[in-house]
C-alpha cells in the first residue's frame, strides 16, 4: 500500500454580481458625497444606519430618509491584537459607534488614538478619504477619530438599548 491520500486541493472561483438593494443603494450614493443617510421606521421611529429598507423589529418597509451626523459616541469596543489579512497594523480598536441621530451602532475602526486611551462614551467623528477617492462604499470613511469633546456618561449612552 502506498501512502494514504489525506487531502486534495480543488481551487474554486465563483463570481457573483451583488445587488446592494434599493435602500442600501441610496445610502451608498450619498456616502460618496460624505452624507450619511438612515431610514426611519414609520412605526417605532427608530433610525437605521445603514438602512435596509425595513425595520427588523416592526417588519414594515422604511422609506423616510434621515441624514445623521458623521460624529457619534463609542458604546463599546475591543482592541484587536492579532493581524488579519488586509487589516491595519495591530493593535487597533474596533468600536461600536452610535452616530448622532442614529438608533443603532455601527462597527468602525478608531485611529489617531492609542488603544489604551479609548473609552466607552468617547466622542468620535468620521475621517473621510480624500474627495477624489470618495466612492459608494463604506470604505469612503477611512476611520473614526476622537473629537476631544467630553465623554458621554455611560448611563446616557446605554439608553439606546431599550428594546
Amino acid at each position: 500500500m502506498s501512502d494514504p491520500v489525506t487531502g486534495i486541493i480543488t481551487p474554486v472561483r465563483l463570481e457573483y454580481t451583488y445587488t446592494p438593494g434599493v435602500a442600501a443603494s441610496r445610502f451608498l450614493k450619498r456616502i460618496a458625497s460624505k452624507e450619511i443617510v438612515g431610514q426611519k421606521c414609520p412605526r417605532c421611529a427608530k433610525v437605521y444606519v445603514p438602512p435596509r429598507g425595513s425595520c427588523p423589529k416592526c417588519g414594515v418597509p422604511t422609506e423616510e430618509e434621515v441624514t445623521v451626523a458623521d460624529s457619534g459616541t463609542v458604546t463599546t469596543f475591543c482592541i484587536v491584537n492579532i493581524p488579519f489579512a488586509g487589516s491595519v497594523p495591530v493593535p487597533y480598536v474596533s468600536a461600536h459607534i452610535l452616530l448622532d441621530g442614529s438608533d443603532i451602532p455601527l462597527v468602525g475602526l478608531l485611529q489617531e488614538v492609542a488603544a489604551e486611551d479609548v473609552r466607552m462614551g468617547m466622542r468620535v467623528k468620521a475621517v473621510w478619504v480624500p474627495d477624489e477617492e470618495l466612492a459608494p462604499t463604506l470604505l469612503s470613511i477611512k476611520y473614526f477619530t476622537p473629537t476631544g469633546e467630553p465623554d458621554v456618561p455611560i448611563e446616557k449612552i446605554m439608553e439606546y438599548r431599550d428594546a
Partner: peptide
C-alpha cells in the same frame, strides 16, 4: 433579529 435598534 440581528440588526435591531435597541437590542440587548
Amino acid at each position: 433579529p440581528l440588526g435591531m435598534a435597541g437590542r440587548d
